[in-house]
Design a protein around this nucleic acid. Structure first.
Lengths: 134, 134
DNA sequence: CGGAATCCTCCAGGATACTG
DNA sequence: CAGTATCCTGGAGGATTCCG
């Protein structure tokens, strides 16, 4: 079975007639929505950091995922990786201009999150209470 | 093993001294970042829809995931679900005010995505080319 | 120090079939 | 029409170990 069938989801990037950018956005949201990427971006907003500095700054992340995310972000051009030779080796991660430009929209979403949280939690509680009654 | 250990990631909501809302945002980003939720929100922005109308509007989604997402969004208070009794039954999904308020930030991110895409894809191509050379 | 490699688990998400 | 139930797969993400 080698996928002879017609392309499904990811190939129809703009499926809406009225210029909405839905699918593309979905793609980006997937990147933005993963557990650590935006945390990395936000952390690097203040200053460039070394690997272990980052790992300490973002508590709870495994080296595994931090490493993966950093590579992915570098691949996307959102940050730069520069190796400083020496003993010990030091690698510096810094936001690129593209990466910095992402901070605005993300912070907007963050602001929304902060403001909406009480309403969301109240709604969840109410919803769950209804379920228990039944 | 009943998780006696100290709380790890999700309990430290604000771990940064300087008022940044990192963890909380991460939580919201996870919701926002899943494959279909924001597509639902964006689709309902124009008008309320019935289940199958939604399913048709968002091509490629399974009933399974659409159903799950709708319930999750309803639970969070982002949309309302009203059953119109009759034959056949009709259920209408509509954005709540809270849900509508989310559209702004998401569209901002969408705009960024559209603008940044060429740069991102160029960066990816360059990155992958480097790998092939080695 | 900055990773790569390996192994494992959990869950988002798809496909299909059934129900009221 | 609007779901729920069941089964299955890939990949995100964690833990641990090894390496230059």
């Amino acid at each position: 079975m080698v996928a002879v069938e017609e392309p499904v989801v990811h190939d129809q990037v703009f499926h809406e007639p009225n210029g909405r950018d839905c699918r593309l956005v979905g793609d980006i949201l997937a990147r933005v929505g993963d557990k650590w990427s935006m945390l990395v971006v936000m952390t690097l907003l203040d200053a460039p950091l070394h690997f272990n500095e980052l790992k300490r700054a973002i508590r709870g992340v495994s080296q595994q995922m931090l490493s993966r995310n950093l590579r992915a972000l570098e691949r996307d051009g959102l940050l730069t990786r520069t190796v400083h030779v020496g003993v010990p080796v030091r690698v510096e991660y810094a936001l690129s201009d593209l990466g910095r430009s992402l901070a605005g929209p993300v912070q907007a979403l963050g602001a929304w999150a902060v403001e909406a949280r009480p309403a969301i939690e109240a709604s969840r509680a109410a919803f769950d209470r209804e379920l228990d009654k039944i």
